[in-house]
């Protein structure tokens, strides 16, 4: 049974992987949490602080990012940037995303009408 609040739940699941890829895409140059969130928002992807900031830590824990404290025009901030492992993995993930996206587009064309 689909309830009224089913959409947010499914959307969260859908966005989970996308946010990781989006985050990696912006960390070719060092960013701190707030500036990264601003960049993503300017590109149209709103990510809650409570999701993004812990995610940066987890990605660092998985070896995809490195981080350091820096003082640049203001208080000390922790800056994150892609690690070597992250730089190797990122193009592979982008490739995979493009393939998936193309497949999904085909499926949507062949499947049920889906104009929201």
């Amino acid at each position: 049974m689909v309830t009224e609040d089913a959409f947010p739940k499914f959307e969260v699941d859908l966005r989970r992987g996308v946010i990781v890829l989006a985050t990696l895409s912006q960390l070719g140059t060092a960013q701190y949490g707030y500036s990264l969130r601003q960049r993503l928002a300017q590109s149209g992807l709103e990510v809650e602080e409570g999701t993004l900031y812990p995610l940066l830590r987890r990605l660092e824990g998985q070896g995809l990012l490195t981080s350091e404290w820096r003082i640049e025009h203001g208080p000390p901030r922790r800056f994150y940037v892609l690690s070597d492992q992250g730089r190797t993995l990122y193009p592979q993930l982008v490739n995979s995303w493009r393939n998936l996206s193309a497949v999904m587009e085909n499926l949507f064309k062949e499947g049920l009408p889906n104009d929201a």
Partner: peptide
């Protein structure tokens, strides 16, 4: 091991936000 670092980072981020 991660307490002090997360506390400082979270404080800085929330403050700025």
């Amino acid at each position: 091991a991660m307490r002090a670092d997360v506390r400082a980072e979270l404080y800085a981020l929330l403050h700025e936000d």
